[in-house]
């Protein structure tokens, strides 16, 4: 249930930015959530609906873009999307890989007037 805390932080920074740009009504907030994060889209949506009340984002839509996991091999530098939970390199079989995509958890933009 840490989604509540995440969305709280998200709203605070969006509202602060909106104020700076003299935006009175926020219509859309777009966030990017990697598959390799523990944030559940449904919980984020739910938290957003609860927390946006009585703010300039009161009627805003939360758009969530998922990013699938992409890895790179530390040995042969092959870049690949893992199948299931096989995160080892399909080319050289090395288990030493790092995550290139899939750990995202950020606000990309918001829209309003």
């Amino acid at each position: 249930m840490h989604e509540l805390a995440l969305v709280q932080g998200l709203l605070e920074s969006v509202l602060e930015q909106a104020k700076k740009h003299q935006i009175k009504k926020i219509e859309r907030v777009k966030i990017v959530v990697g598959d390799m994060t523990s944030a559940m889209p449904e919980s984020l949506q739910f938290a957003f609906e609860v927390l946006r009340r009585d703010t300039p984002a009161g009627e805003a839509v939360l758009e969530i873009e998922r990013r699938p996991v992409k890895l790179t091999c530390q040995e042969c530098h092959f870049v690949f999307r893992p199948e299931g939970l096989k995160y080892s390199c399909p080319q050289c079989v090395s288990g030493r890989t790092s995550i290139v995509e899939g750990r995202e958890l950020f606000v990309e933009y918001f829209e309003g007037e």
Binding site: G9, V14, Q17, H21, L105, F106, Y109
Partner: peptide, 13 residues
């Protein structure tokens, strides 16, 4: 108006 932020949700932490 569209405002780009690129703000990480875990930035404070």
């Amino acid at each position: 108006m569209k405002v780009f932020m690129a703000r990480d949700l875990l930035q404070t932490n």
